[in-house]
């Protein structure tokens, strides 16, 4: 299959991966973020590419543990950009990327903490003037400043894109799962601290954040003037009953009917 082919033409490619602190959905413990870990995995599978990790945030013991989760995937150092809490990390990251000048920047689609709006990669792309693509599934080849990549679409489909480097690509959960984090390399890995000014995000102060409420279920409201219609809608059995049943037909006639439906739905290729 062409889309699983290993990319060998990425020799000398400089890849930066933006990583964040994740939060386990069940236990709420800090961990490596799932989509970011997939982005690291994708960078590591690019043969011959040099991978550097970048994280911007405040320094805490807990966060350090989570970042070590990425180091345990087989990476020596992570660059940490020190930022205050409530800081807008976009300017700091844009500066770091401008100086680092990687050809490809990978990151998860959405963070697991904070606002998690998923806008950061787009803001970086706009600030740097680089193209951005979403749902990267594989990098097929890199040549002459152009990368041929596969984009994951819903329902397991893939689309082939050619994109001019340098570029930013986001990785979502359709990318290959991340490898396990090993304890030894995670402990041995080093942090490289970078200093940057923090720009405080003022808008955050005006927001109210509370634990998520359960969304109300939408009621089925029948708008009908006659009571009989309303009663019929309320008492109706759930099954559609609008189906067409072909009995006493030859297999050929039945097959023709099915074939027509498959063709109308456009699933035959």
């Amino acid at each position: 299959m062409p889309h699983n082919a290993k990319s060998t033409a990425s020799v000398g490619l400089n890849v930066a991966v933006l990583v964040s602190i994740g939060r386990h959905p069940l236990t709420a413990r800090t961990r490596r973020a799932d989509q970011d870990a997939r982005a690291v995995e994708m960078a590591l599978t690019l043969e011959g590419a040099s991978v550097s990790l970048l994280h911007a945030g405040q320094q805490e013991h807990e966060h350090e543990e989570a970042i070590r989760g990425y180091l345990g995937m087989g990476i020596d150092t992570v660059s940490l950009i020190q930022q205050q809490s409530q800081a807008d990390v976009v300017p700091a990251l844009a500066n770091a990327l401008r100086t680092g000048a990687p050809q490809l920047v990978l990151t998860g689609t959405r963070a697991e903490t904070g606002e998690a709006s998923g806008v950061l990669p787009y803001l970086l792309a706009e600030a740097l003037g680089w193209p951005i693509i979403t749902g990267l599934a594989a990098v097929e080849k890199v040549e002459q400043g152009m990368a041929t990549v596969l984009q994951a679409l819903p329902r397991g489909k893939r689309r082939r894109l050619r994109i001019r480097l340098p570029a930013i690509a986001t990785v979502d959960s359709s990318a290959p799962a991340a490898r396990q984090s090993a304890f030894g390399p995670a402990k041995r890995g080093a942090f490289e601290h970078l200093d940057a000014t923090s720009e405080i995000d003022e808008a955050l102060a005006a927001w109210q954040v509370q634990p998520a409420r359960k969304r109300p279920k939408r009621l089925k409201i029948v708008k009908s003037s006659s009571a009989r219609d309303r009663f019929k809608a309320a008492a109706a059995k759930a099954d559609g009953g609008s189906g067409q049943t072909l009995s006493d037909v030859t297999p050929e006639q039945g097959a023709e009917a099915i074939f027509k439906l498959l063709k109308e739905e456009g699933v035959l290729r």
Binding site: R23, P25, A28, R110, A111, E112, T113, G114, E115, A116, S117, A203, A206, W207, Q208, V209, Q210, P211, A212, R213
Partner: peptide, 14 residues
């Protein structure tokens, strides 16, 4: 009202 932090929080804002 918007979902934040991977669906764990509700952010209420203008």
């Amino acid at each position: 009202t918007a979902r934040g932090a991977a669906g764990r929080n509700d952010i209420s804002r203008t």
